[in-house]
Design a protein around this nucleic acid. Structure first.
Lengths: 228, 228
DNA sequence: CGGAAAAGTTAGGATGTACTAACATTCTGA
DNA sequence: TCAGAATGTTAGTACATCCTAACTTTTCCG
């Protein structure tokens, strides 16, 4: 009856500590070390809590911290983060494909399940989905070995007039944003052509499957594309 | 990125506290208040830890404790326990039916997921299964309102020679025990007829689908039946 | 360049949960 | 019945995590 620990790998971490590693992973993608205040903002905790946790994670060999200068993942920490991201994206795919969740609604559920699901469950889900390589928002799913295609993609905001490209992915964080995108027809896989770009960060007008839509510059910067 | 809390209902409990309520629910089915040491044994914690937790749960109005005499669930605690059991059994059914888990292997996974899954996920699973009323081990699934058919069933050990009955359920706790039962053909739904009962708690010989098998008295006491 | 603002850390405390050791109560059997 | 066994509780401690308040370091701008 006691809740069994999920951890199949040695060195059990709590879900909290795991979340820190995931956040550091994402922040670090900018190239800079993850800043204490950014981690705090991302997790919704006080900066002081982050300082404390970073010391613990450093003691465990999961991150390298330079005092006053932020944190970077050590290889074992990176591995944990990548497996968590794998879990997250497989769960999102499963919920959307097998349980009728809409793509804007899968994030929070996955955020909780990724800490509780066993590796066996994750792999069974992956198998029942035919081992997908991207989640419903187009984010690439790391392999069991921790390989992931993290090319930095161009966004719609970086396209030029008359250019055509295929939408690859978008952030999964804000359900309302995702619903908006789906509403105007922007989902992974569709082709878009830039019709016009208003100056001074103005809206971008584009064609999606014969329809004209106009989206704000901020939104355009959150939708990533690749050459057709 | 912060792990969102599962709790849709007010008064969030941790998974640990929830486990205590579930254990008390099961122990209380005997009619007696749940004893500190029994709760401790079930959860794998020290009796002192149970005393502490019972005080907290009592303060929250979830259990009623009589010092030195054990705990009983208060109505709100009973509700939490029943919903947890509903979650557990729906998850077990889902894993077995939709993800190819074997019935002896679903318990631990469900034990962790029941604390992390949202009510929405549970209801989507239930729906995709056609709203099952029993889990793979034959245990009844409480309704959303908290109703559950908890008749106390007779076990094979209480049958008499030449009597025939249908297997309804068995304990889901020990995977090896479940594999053994499946091996001799004892699964929910099959009919058994008692051929002989050795005296002094000796083995019970029975016929299952034309085959003769002999099981120990202890095992016979763990397999529950109803009249055909 | 130097002081104020921003960012980060430490100190000290709260909560939930666990432990062991010591003490208290209840049960049980001769 | 009553003493020892069994059971339960309290006290004191530990750890993970959070907080606020006070302090330190870094950054930035006039």
């Amino acid at each position: 009856m006691a809740t069994p620990s999920r951890r199949d790998t040695p060195g059990a971490l709590t879900g909290q500590a795991e979340d820190y590693l995931k956040v550091i992973y994402h922040l670090e993608r900018s190239g800079e070390a993850a800043a204490t205040s950014d981690i705090a903002a991302e997790l919704g905790v006080a900066p002081a809590s982050v300082s404390g946790m970073l010391q613990r994670l450093a003691r465990l060999g999961l991150v390298r911290v330079e005092r006053y200068r932020g944190a970077r993942l050590a290889p074992p920490g990176r591995h944990v983060a990548l497996q968590l991201i794998r879990r997250h994206r497989i769960i999102e795919s499963f919920l959307a494909t097998k349980l009728g969740y809409s793509w804007d609604d899968v994030h929070d559920e996955a955020e909780r399940l990724e800490h509780a699901a066993s590796t066996e469950l994750i792999e069974r889900m992956a198998e029942s989905l035919g081992h997908p390589t991207a989640d419903p928002h187009g984010a690439p799913i790391p392999t069991v070995e921790g390989r992931v295609d993290e090319r930095s993609l161009r966004s719609i905001a970086e396209m030029t007039v008359r250019e055509t490209a295929r939408v690859v992915r978008m952030s999964d964080r804000d359900p309302a944003f995702l619903r908006y995108l789906a509403g105007v027809g922007l989902t992974p896989g569709v082709e878009v052509t830039i019709v016009a770009i208003a100056p001074f960060d103005g809206p971008v007008e584009l064609r999606i499957a014969r329809k004209r839509v106009s989206i704000g510059a901020a939104a355009a910067g959150q939708v990533f594309i690749e050459p057709v």
